[in-house]
Design a binder for these strands. Sequence first.
RNA 1: GCGGCUAUGGUGAAGUUGGUCAACACACUGGAUUGUGGCUCCAGCACUCGUGGGUUCGAGUCCCACUAGUCGCCCCA
Length: 421
Amino acid sequence: MSYQTPRGTYDILPSDINKWHDVERVIREKTSLYRYREIRTPYFEDTSVFKRENDSSDMVNKEMYTFTMGSESYTLRPEGTAGVIRAFDQHKLYGSMEMPARFYYVGAMFRHERPQKGRQRQFTQFGVENIGAKTPEIDAETIALGYDIVKAMGISSIKVLINTLGDDESRAAYREALKKHFAPHLDDLCGDCKRRYEQNPLRILDCKVDHDKECMASAPKLSEYLNEESRNYFSQVLACLDALGIPYEIDERLVRGLDYYTHTVFEVVSTRPDSGAQATIFAGGRYDHFVEYYGGPEMSGIGFAIGLERLISLATEEGYPFPEENQCDVYVIGLGNVGDSVLKTLAMLRNAGYRAEGNLVKRSLKAQFKSADRAMAKYIVILGEDEVAAGTLNVKNAADKTQLTLKNEELLGQLEKWEEE
RNA sequence: GCGGCUAUGGUGAAGUUGGUCAACACACUGGAUUGUGGCUCCAGCACUCGUGGGUUCGAGUCCCACUAGUCGCCCCA
């Protein structure tokens, strides 16, 4: 037991892989219906792609896997959006694609966090980015896409939380109002909040430590500082969601960790009591300045990301029927020195499209039948030395146990006949 | 970074105030049945209880450290 996966990583074994195949299938189907296309970016980037200047976010500087090769500093991607926007700008896709450009990605992300339920150090995210246009309709459609996928995985105990951060002007006004409000209470707040006061006052509202303090309840609300345009934009987003029949809850505390978000932010959470501390299924928002940051034109985008581990675990808890994909159509049993005939029969079956497995080890008949059972084989072919000499074989229908002796060339026809019944 | 709980075979696990052989079940392998399975019966399957140290005549059982898992705090791009 000396070798094992590094902390916070895990193996996906063959017994579980069907879940991953299926969730990936659902993702590709749904994104294709919404006309999104896949983009694959590197698993690591220059550290500067993720460690942005002037970013006051709490987390960007820590919890990243950063390593140095020569004079270069690289970082394993902790999220998907930065790489997609970087690619969008690098390849000047704003010049060759129709706007809005629609991307999706699926792959591993890396964060150096303490593992717990629904949180690993290497985990898999699916996300979409819709770049180059900014309308309430696009915001609503983006949320709808994520909502569709979660629903398609049979997850019904969910809640859409939504909020707006407004545009730059609204946010600046609110920021000032918050600082003014909290200034006299500064000694009252926790250490983190004192830092947030300078860097990102909005995050104070998110604080768990100071959550119940009086000055939190009496804090000014962002909605009171939204300008006309921001207010209109948000109410149109809500109207679009109403039109789509997507239920939502406005959550004024929803601020998001990164400060690149503008206008719409949203989060879909599980309402199951057993989902633990990590209840968020997907989360995202609109960003007005990200494209510019990586050297592109002034363009807005919106996106979200879903953690697939959580999606799969919730789907499992809700009883979603992941398809079994390990069934065997035909199992070929060989008795005596008939190895080459077993191989030839298998080849014939596979060419005809049957999932076929054969016994390639010297074993008793009983053991071979057991293997056939375990493979859940629908049909069993039995080859013995006598049959091989006579150019025949026995084939058995596992369901009703009827057995026939056929000439080799009659096998496929008989299987077809059984299949039609 | 902080805290709670846990750690016995391939799996689920029992193990009593520390005192012979480390239950039981499933799985697996072989046999009864040497060419016809899923049932039944029989047999086999942990020189050892996460690792290291300590207490003791004696430790799976007590103590310490470490490691790992798990849940929670923090954080969640």
